[in-house]
C-alpha cells in the first residue's frame, strides 16, 4: 500500500521538506514490509498485552502538594509574557 506521507506528517505535526517526504516514503514502505512478517503469526483468540506488569489500580490519594514556582515553570520557554507562555497567534477561521 502507499503511505500518504503528507497526511501522516500533518497528523504528526512534523514539518517536512519535499525531499524528506520522498525519502521517508521509501523507508516507511521498507519497514512496513518487514513488519508485515507478523501476519505469519496466528493470533486468533489471543488477547493483546499493552502492559507487562500485571499491576492494577495504582492510584494516588487526592492530597495536593506544592507546585513549581512560576519562574521554574517558565525557565525553559522560548517566549513568555507576564507569566504566560507565549506563541504566535492562533485564530479560528472567522
Amino acid at each position: 500500500m502507499k503511505i500518504d506521507v503528507s497526511r501522516v506528517a500533518q497528523l504528526a505535526n512534523l514539518p517536512l521538506t519535499a525531499d524528506e517526504k520522498k525519502k521517508l516514503a521509501a523507508q516507511l514502505e521498507e519497514t512496513l514490509t518487514y513488519i508485515d512478517q507478523l501476519n505469519e503469526v496466528d493470533t486468533k483468540n489471543i488477547l493483546p498485552t499493552s502492559q507487562v506488569t500485571g499491576l492494577e489500580n495504582v492510584l494516588a490519594e487526592d492530597i495536593a502538594q506544592p507546585s513549581l514556582t512560576q519562574q521554574a515553570a517558565l525557565a525553559n520557554a522560548q517566549a513568555t509574557d507576564k507569566g504566560f507562555f507565549k506563541v504566535k497567534g492562533i485564530f479560528s477561521d472567522e
Binding site: D81, K82, F84, F85, K86, V87, K88, G89, I90
Partner: peptide, 9 residues
C-alpha cells in the same frame, strides 16, 4: 489571545 499572540496558562 492578545496583540496577535496567544498566551498559555
Amino acid at each position: 489571545h492578545a496583540y496577535g499572540a496567544s498566551l498559555i496558562d
